[in-house]
Write a protein that binds this DNA or RNA. Structure first.
Length: 260
DNA sequence: CTTAATGTTCCCCA
DNA sequence: TTGGGGAACATTAA
C-alpha cells in the first residue's frame, strides 16, 4: 500500500483531523507491529496532545507535546479515522474527539516510540537537488533499481514508483548506477520529481486495497505505464512490457525503450 | 497447492 | 565496506 505518494496522502488527510487532539487512551495487540512492551507504549501516549503530523520517507511522524510516535505502514498497513475493529486491527487510539485505528493484515508495519530507522534515511526525493543526487549516485556501483529502492540512498521510493521512474527516463533497471551519463541522471531526477508530484496530485495508487485516512482510494494506478502491465503494449513503442525479478522484486519495464 | 503481493532486515558469501 | 542472493516476517488472493 504505502510508498511516498500514498503516505503523503495519508498524512495530509490525517493532519487536520489529528492536530490539537488529545489521546485519551491507546491499545496495541500485535507483537510484530508494536515490538517490545506494548502496555508501556500505551501508557506513554495516553494523555498526550498531538502537535504535528508529518511524513519522512515512508514514515509517519506524530509529534506529541512530549515525545514522538513513529509509524510505518509496511505493506498492508492502514490508518483510519473511522471504522470498526477487525481481526487485523492492531492499534486503537481513543481521542478526546474521535478515534484512530491501525489495521495491518500482514503486520509488516510498525508503531514505535521514536524509530532509529528515520535517522538513517537518505534525502527526500522532492527536495534533493540534481547536483547532490548525481554526486551520491556516482559513488554507487549497484544496479539502479536496487539503489532507488534503498531508503538510505533516497527516502520514500518503492517498487511501483521506481519502475515508473525508470520507464519515464528510459533507463533499464539493471543499469549500473555509477555508469549512467549526466544527461540520463538529469532525466531520471526530473522523472522522479514529475512522477511523485503527479502521483500525489492523484492521491496515490490503489492497487489492491490502499485507502487514505478517510477511506478514499487513490487514482494514480490508472496512469501506471509499466507497473502491473506485463504483456501489455508499451505506451511509447508498442512492444510487450516485460517482467523480471530484480533486487528481489517484480520489475516491469519496456525491453525496447529502456537501455542499460 | 503454489505463487506473488505497494516493505524491510538479516545472514551468508564474494 | 560494498554488493548480490535468498530467506524471513504474516496473511490473503488469484
Amino acid at each position: 500500500m504505502p510508498e511516498l505518494p500514498e503516505v503523503e496522502t495519508v498524512v495530509r488527510t490525517l493532519a487536520p483531523y489529528l492536530i490539537g487532539r488529545r489521546i485519551v487512551s491507546a491499545r496495541f495487540t500485535s507483537r510484530f507491529v508494536t515490538p517490545g512492551d506494548r502496555k508501556k507504549l500505551a501508557r506513554r501516549v495516553a494523555g498526550r496532545r498531538i502537535e504535528s503530523v508529518a511524513r519522512r520517507g515512508k514514515f509517519i511522524v506524530v509529534g506529541l507535546d512530549k515525545g514522538e510516535l513513529v509509524m510505518h505502514l509496511g505493506m498492508t498497513g492502514k490508518l483510519l479515522s473511522a471504522g470498526i475493529e477487525t481481526t487485523h486491527t492492531h492499534g486503537v487510539f481513543t481521542l478526546d474527539e474521535g478515534m484512530l485505528l491501525y489495521e495491518d493484515p500482514r503486520q509488516f508495519g510498525r508503531i514505535e516510540w521514536g524509530d532509529a530507522r528515520v535517522q538513517r534515511l537518505g534525502p527526500e526525493p522532492l527536495e534533493v537537488g540534481l547536483a547532490e543526487f548525481s554526486a551520491r549516485l556516482r559513488k554507487r556501483k549497484t544496479r539502479i533499481k536496487a539503489l532507488l529502492l534503498n531508503q538510505s540512498f533516497i527516502a520514500g521510493l518503492g517498487n511501483i514508483y521506481v519502475d515508473e521512474i525508470l520507464f519515464l527516463s528510459g533507463i533499464h533497471p539493471l543499469a549500473q548506477a555509477a555508469r549512467l551519463s549526466a544527461p540520463r541522471v538529469a532525466k531520471m531526477h526530473q522523472a522522479m520529481v514529475d512522477t511523485l508530484t503527479l502521483a500525489i496530485e492523484h492521491r496515490g495508487s490503489s492497487i489492491s486495497d490502499y485507502v487514505d485516512a478517510d477511506g478514499n482510494r487513490g487514482n494514480f494506478q490508472m496512469l501506471h505505464r509499466v507497473y502491473g502491465r506485463e504483456g501489455e503494449a508499451c505506451v511509447n513503442c508498442g512492444a510487450a512490457i516485460k517482467k523480471a525479478v530484480v533486487a528481489g522484486r517484480g520489475t516491469h519495464y519496456c525491453p525496447v525503450c529502456q537501455k542499460r
